[in-house]
Design a binder for these strands. Structure first.
Lengths: 179, 179
DNA sequence: GTCTATATTCCGATAGAC
DNA sequence: GTCTATCGGAATATAGAC
């Protein structure tokens, strides 16, 4: 019975997130967000005193969701790499939606930028601790970045993600000569 | 003496590109672009009848610059992969600036999106034709994307780019088993 | 060709009724 | 708590002077 409160807040925040994703950062005006959440702009601005406050709340949300994900990744049975790379499980997850939507705020929201950067370095740390070989960890992270970048720019989930994961796993078993 | 004409057009287009990059897609209003180019909004709208026309011209510019780059890459003495990977030569090049600026238009400009997608697949084809193994070509493309995504988000050129290139070259010499 | 002035639309925010 | 009404600012675009 703890979350019966602030239903309007959550509806507004969800509508904001969805609109940011669907419109690729445009058309997420307070009017549109309010309409989507089933309130008016006045009602929205009662819960979030300004657009900035609404954006801050979404960044807070991402921060919390990411912290949970770090903990799951750190304690994943198959290891951090096997947890990190499967993009298919990630795409459209609550963490993904929070990350992408905050990404659209980043250009004029410094805390959003620093949070996204912090998340990247945290993932790299966790993968490096799992894989051992720092270069392979770096390659795995960059491949994940590449897949993610591709998804961001094309708007479509790549179809060969499994092949990439398999490729990294083979490298892990038999790394190329260092000479 | 062929390009003494349309100096104002070029100044406007350059100002538009620079403003898009500097402001990460925001603050590139017609007023600002005109001010930066040393004309007024009226003057700008004489050369480009609408904002859309201005955006179209920038997309056209990228299309031309990219076509030149494809040809250079296709005929590069060291091969397509060696031409593609050195990020240091690419960062801040005319092609880079055109690509990044058009990227900021992409969210509400379909031709910009399709052009960027076409460029990606064209690079992948050229690398694949050079490398032979399609999966390795894909990995090389994704690593390049990853490095680029990193510079976009952190604002700094990665320090281990040479290690990544070396890693890919070793993979090329001795690919991991396909089993 | 380039300018000024203005019309129009949209967004964020405030004031105040209920 | 949620609504309506409205202000102020910014952006695209048009009209017309020079």
């Amino acid at each position: 019975m703890a979350q019966h409160k602030d239903n309007a807040r959550e509806a507004i925040l969800t509508a904001f997130q969805n609109l940011l994703i669907e419109s690729r950062g445009t058309s997420a005006s307070l009017d549109e967000v309010a309409r989507r959440a089933g309130v008016t702009k006045g009602g929205l601005l009662y819960h979030f005193g300004s657009r900035r406050a609404l954006e801050d709340a979404l960044v807070d949300h991402l921060e919390a969701v990411a912290a949970e994900d770090f903990e799951r990744m750190r304690t994943a049975p198959g290891g951090a790499l096997a947890y990190y790379l499967p993009l298919r499980d990630y795409i459209d997850s609550p963490l993904d939606r929070a990350t992408v939507s905050v990404g659209f705020l980043a250009h004029d929201h410094e805390r959003a930028r620093t949070l996204l950067a912090m998340m990247r370095s945290r993932y790299q740390e966790l993968i490096a601790a799992d894989v051992g070989d720092p270069l392979l960890a770096r390659v795995a992270l960059l491949l994940g970045d590449g897949l993610y970048y591709e998804t961001l720019t094309t708007g479509a989930v790549p179809g060969d993600e499994v092949d990439i994961i398999d490729f990294v796993n083979r490298l892990r078993a038999a790394p190329p000569d260092a000479g």
